[in-house]
Design a protein around this nucleic acid. Structure first.
Lengths: 186, 186
DNA sequence: GCTTGTCTGTACCGATCGGTACAAACACTG
DNA sequence: CAGTGTTTGTACCGATCGGTACAGACAAGC
């Protein structure tokens, strides 16, 4: 008897990091095995669906983390400006100030719609909508809030791409600074 | 005797499209062969260095096209505002209004620095600097021009990521609209 | 015609891919 | 302790990976 439900969750962060660095195609099971310290037996025991299920689980975990840490406050925090500032600081922390890449964004660019498309779209749609909600609650007109929210989400992704491309994390910090001005000032 | 120097250049667009859709790892030689209509023999004759040389050549061709079509006018056109507007319209056309992805950006996110890093960084650095130049010539203070240029380059990349992620090319068009306001209005 | 050099299709290479089979090792319950 | 179900390492599978070898097809110069 005795299940070990922790194994799956314990391995997820390491698996996520491999996907993040190498992309879906580039993340081989050998690499995943090495980074998690798990053999194929354990890996396929925890994820019977193989690589695809690992990616699914990773995307789900990321989505859940953002939902709880970022989107929920944007929607519900009585102080919407504080929620937006929280979003910016959590984003900075999550992406290690531009040294880390967005797995969801990377998947979006390369993946041939392996069934991840829904999750990928949901991640960004939720972010955009939660932020628009906060902006409206902060007193912005609805149309302006939608536009600003879309711009913010896309700007963060672009900041990650450019920071990585130039190998210059400072790009990410400057981008967050400009974003804060646009979102919470005035 | 008789060289056939055209073969290489003729195949490049098809090869580029494969890299664009599948990423470096995902683009198999079988796929490239099918899309170019070239067998392995021809492929390795035109690109003795194999896949890596194909990617190099594709990146070089993209860089050259942008240099000629976008960066040079930004630096040299006597009407900097017109050059910026040209940049926006050429960008819209090149990325097929958001239906196409940026190969350089996609490589930047996933590639483990296979020697492409320099070319990738150069592509974005040149864009940013040429745009800053145009903004300065249009009357912006240098610091503001640098900031705006970096923001614009990164915003375009983000627009591509988000348009692809949401499978909604309209995102890209809206982003270009906002960008035009920021860059040439006021 | 023959020669010379450029192309290209095909067969093949070792390595690695994702995935499966399964038996030994393990951790619990009784 | 025996018994039961879980967890794991290992060997193995066919397919495909990027890359090489090379013989024949081809075109141009003589």
């Amino acid at each position: 008897m005795t299940k070990k439900p922790g194994a799956r969750e314990d391995a997820l962060p390491a698996i996520a990091e491999v996907f993040r660095e190498y992309g879906y195609e580039g993340a081989s099971l050998a690499l995943i095995g090495a980074r998690t310290g798990l053999g194929k037996g354990s890996l396929y025991h925890a994820f019977p669906g193989g690589k695809a299920e690992m990616a699914e689980a990773v995307l789900a975990a990321i989505g859940a983390w953002f939902e709880e840490t970022v989107y929920a406050p944007l929607r519900d925090d009585p102080d919407p400006r504080a929620a937006i500032r929280l979003m910016l600081s959590e984003t900075d922390a999550y992406f290690r100030s531009g040294r880390r890449v967005c797995l969801v964004g990377a998947f979006a660019l390369t993946e041939g719609r392996d069934g991840f498309a829904d999750r990928i779209a949901g991640y960004f749609r939720d972010w955009r909508e939660a932020l628009a909600e906060a902006l409206i609650r902060a007193g912005r007109p609805a149309a302006e809030a939608d536009s600003l929210a879309e711009d913010a989400v896309l700007t963060i992704q672009g900041g990650l791409v450019l920071a990585r491309a130039l190998d210059d994390p400072a790009v990410f910090g400057r981008m967050l600074g400009r974003l804060e001005e646009r979102l919470v000032s005035e």
